[in-house]
Design a protein around this nucleic acid. Structure first.
Lengths: 251, 251
DNA sequence: TCGAGACAATCTCAATCTGAGGACAACGAG
DNA sequence: CTCGTTGTCCTCAGATTGAGATTGTCTCGA
C-alpha cells in the first residue's frame, strides 16, 4: 500500500464531478415591530430579477462561518468586526443539496441564520444595490429553494427565543423589558401577557441585568419611565420561556 | 444581457475551484445500557487505519438525505426500506467546511445524526468489514474532525430527547416504561427518578400508547410484569422532559 | 416451600411555577 | 387638571415538579 504522502501527491481533485458550495444567509431584524428578512434582487443569471437570500460561493481559504459573515457584511454594507455587525448573532442553520436546486450545476448551500439589531437600510453602491429588509410575511417566491430555507430559518428563530437569550440580539445594547417583549411578540406573532413576561424575564438568571438607569421619558402615549437592562451572561435560559399557544404536541 | 438559457449553455462548471461534498453519519444506538456510535476503520488513504464516522461522497443524482441513508445502509449491512432500517431516525446535524479539514482537497461534509434500535453487529464482507458499535466514551482520536462532529451529535441527541419522542427510536416496536427510562439514562448519563419519569411519560399526550399487553415475565432479578407500550403519534413532547442536572444556565 | 430482595406502578406532599387578572403610580397629551 | 396609557408589582388558584413512601407481583436461592 502506498504511504499517505505518496497518495496525496498522486491525488487528482479534478477526477471528481464538479460541484460548488455556497452560503446563504437568513438575516432577521425587527423593524417597526415587524420581523424582517434581508433580501437581494438578483442582478445576474440565473434567475436575474428574482429576490433571493444574500449569499455566494465559499472562497478558497475561508471557513463556512467566515463566508457567511463576509456575505452578510457585503450586503448590509457593514464590515465584520465594526460597529453594529459585531453584535450580530450568526449561526449555521442547515444545508441544502438537492441535485437540481440550482440550474447551473450541483450546488450545495450551507444556510446561516443571523439575528441583527435594527440596522440602517443597506447602503447602495456595494454588491447590495438591491438589498432591502422585507417583512417576512411578504417574502415569497424567492429564487432557488430560498422559500424553504427562509421557512426553516424562521422556525429555528422562533424556537431559539424559547431557550436562549438571543432575543437580546435584536435589541440595542440597552433595552426595556417592554421592548424585549415586543421582540418576542414580533417573532412569535402573538401578544404576551406583560406582567407574566416581566416576572419571567427577571427570574431567569443571567438573561438580563439592570443598568440602574431608566428611559429619559415615558412611552409615546404616556406611562412611567421604564428601567433599562442589558443582555446578561447566560447562554441558555433556565427555565425556558415557552410559547403560549403551542399547538398541542404537533402530531 | 444574455438570456437565462444562453447563460446556462455557456456556463462552465470547471471554472470554479475543485471541491467535494461528503456525508458523515453519527449513528447512535444503545447496547447493554450504553450509548454507542457506529465507527469504521479506514481502509484507504488518507488516514488509513484510523477510526472514523461512516461516510462518503455524495453521488451525482442523490439528495443529501439519500446519501446519508445509503452510507448508513452500507455500513450496517442493512438496506434502506428493509426491516429495522425503516425504523431508524435520520436527521441532518450540521455541516463542516474548514479549508484543511481533509488533506486531499477542499471537502465539505454534511453530518447526519441517526438513532437506531439495537442492531446486530455490522456484517462483515461489505464495505463495513471494519465497522463496529463503540461506546461513545471510548470513541476518541477519530480521523479528520470527526471528534468534533461526534461531540456535536451527542449534544444534539441529548437535547432532542428532551422535547421529542425520539428516545422511542432506540427501543424496539414495543417497550416498557423502564426500558424507555434506561434509554434516557444512557443518553443523558444520569439516573432518573423512576416514579416521576413514569408519571411524566404517561402524562405527555401522544408520547406512548399502551398495547394492553405485559412482558411475559418480570425482570431478571424479580419484580412484576411491566406493561408494554409503543411509540405514540406525537412529534413534539409537551410539556418537555427536561434533564434534571442542567448546569445552571450555561454561562 | 418460603423468605428476601427486585421492581412496576401508584400515591403523597410540600415547594415551585404558571396563567390570568388587578393595583397603583408615573407619565404624555389635550 | 384630567384622562387614558403603560411599567412594575402583587395576588391567587390551578398545575407541575422533585423526593420519598407504599403496594403488590415476581424471581431467585436457601
Amino acid at each position: 500500500m502506498q504511504s499517505e504522502s505518496e497518495f496525496l501527491a498522486a491525488y487528482d481533485p479534478r477526477a471528481y464531478p464538479a460541484v460548488a458550495v455556497t452560503v446563504d444567509v437568513v438575516a432577521l431584524t425587527i423593524r417597526d415591530g415587524r420581523l424582517c428578512v434581508l433580501l437581494v434582487e438578483r442582478g445576474e443569471q440565473p434567475l436575474a430579477g428574482r429576490r433571493a437570500l444574500p449569499g455566494g460561493f465559499v472562497r478558497k481559504e475561508e471557513t463556512l462561518d467566515q463566508a457567511a459573515m463576509r456575505e452578510l457584511g457585503e450586503e448590509t454594507g457593514l464590515r465584520p468586526g465594526e460597529g453594529e455587525l459585531t453584535r450580530v448573532h450568526l449561526e449555521q442553520l442547515r444545508s441544502y443539496g438537492d441535485p437540481h436546486r440550482d440550474p447551473r450545476m450541483r450546488v450545495f448551500t450551507v444556510a446561516y441564520l443571523a439575528f441583527a439589531p435594527s440596522l440602517p437600510d443597506p447602503r447602495a453602491g456595494s454588491d447590495a444595490a438591491a438589498a432591502s429588509w422585507v417583512p417576512v410575511d411578504e417574502a415569497r417566491d424567492l429564487a432557488f429553494d430560498h422559500d424553504a430555507i427562509l421557512a426553516d430559518g424562521l422556525e429555528r428563530a422562533r424556537a431559539k427565543l424559547e431557550y436562549t437569550p438571543l432575543a437580546t440580539a435584536f435589541a440595542g445594547t440597552e433595552f426595556t423589558i417592554s421592548e424585549l417583549r415586543q421582540i418576542y411578540a414580533a417573532v412569535w406573532g402573538e401578544e404576551l401577557h406583560a406582567g407574566n413576561f416581566h416576572r419571567k424575564v427577571l427570574s431567569v438568571p443571567g438573561f438580563v441585568e439592570s443598568t440602574g438607569e431608566t428611559t429619559a421619558r415615558g412611552g409615546e402615549r404616556g406611562g412611567p419611565r421604564a428601567k433599562l437592562y442589558r443582555a446578561g451572561d447566560a447562554r441558555l435560559l433556565h427555565p425556558a420561556l415557552l410559547r403560549p399557544t403551542r399547538e398541542e404536541g404537533v402530531r
